[in-house]
Design a protein around this nucleic acid. Structure first.
Lengths: 148, 148
DNA sequence: GGAAACTATATAAGTCTCTTATATAAGTTG
DNA sequence: CAACTTATATAAGAGACTTATATAGTTTCC
């Protein structure tokens, strides 16, 4: 408790996090998929195949909702279900190439948007952000470890 | 086009933005309000009273949805509607003390969460983030100017 | 100055995305 | 082997949004 983040303003970091969230959410969606649906795709894209129960644990929705969402994604050809060989009850959900394309498409939009904004920052500002990225990524990593 | 952000990796910044969004969304909600509803409250809290049409412009939903959301918030006592003196058609929506308390409550949760994570960063990591916050805030500001 | 066009919001009905409740099947534990 | 737990599916219902449309006020144009 003596290792106090006295230079880092948590209030400012929180504000930036909130603003980043709103920036992210407000980019217009190309595909008419719900936020949870896109989040599931993103999770599969970055974390590899997962069980329905694992997907449920990572989203703020109920288990039947995840079942429905994955059924929908399967219908659109964005994911593929496969029985889990280690558990007769379970299903492993894999993202398909089409699903990965959806995730990549959105990321490309965000990257283009951020690149445009970043160009209007000063060199010093860009350097400061670049220097902080590994630490910000660590923050996220700590958060993920906390959840899992 | 020669002022290239060669030290700032847009891919990494995008990834952090996406992860921040997911961190933010995944904090369990105390109030059972939709994401859009909370976003409207947040907008009123930080930007002051706004017209329904202004709120519509800032969210990814239709005008009737905003009308319904604001009606709901009014019923909960979280906002207050007031005719716009400069336009007989328009309504100005003000956040109430109860509404501000909802926004502040969520922010406090996020701050507590981030503070806990930040404590587990090294001093150098916290310093790097602190140094980057003004630049990140500028990025957000540039984005807001782009929308308005 | 009045008609046409535009803007702001409200309402109704419908759709989609989620919820709760519950069922079934498979795995684990004692 | 029975009881309990876990994994997922299904059905019905509710909430949050949509589209369609209406009404009222403002602005523009002739």
């Amino acid at each position: 408790m003596s290792s106090q983040a006295h230079e880092l303003s948590i209030a400012q970091l929180t504000a930036v996090m909130e603003d980043f969230t709103r920036m992210s959410i407000r980019l217009p969606a190309v595909h008419r998929l719900s936020f949870t649906t896109l989040s599931v795709l993103h999770t599969l894209s970055s974390g590899g195949p997962k069980r329905l129960s694992e997907l449920t644990a990572g989203e703020q929705v109920t288990q039947p909702a995840i079942t429905q969402i994955v059924r929908n994604l399967e219908r659109y050809g964005l994911v593929r279900r496969q029985p889990d060989p280690s558990d007769g009850r379970a299903v492993l959900v894999h993202i398909t190439a089409a699903g990965a394309a959806v995730v990549d498409g959105r990321r490309a939009e965000r990257m283009a948007h951020l690149a445009e904004l970043a160009e209007r920052l000063t060199r010093a500002e860009r350097d400061a952000i670049a220097a902080a990225l590994p630490a910000l990524a660590r923050l996220v990593e700590l958060n993920e470890r906390r959840i899992d």
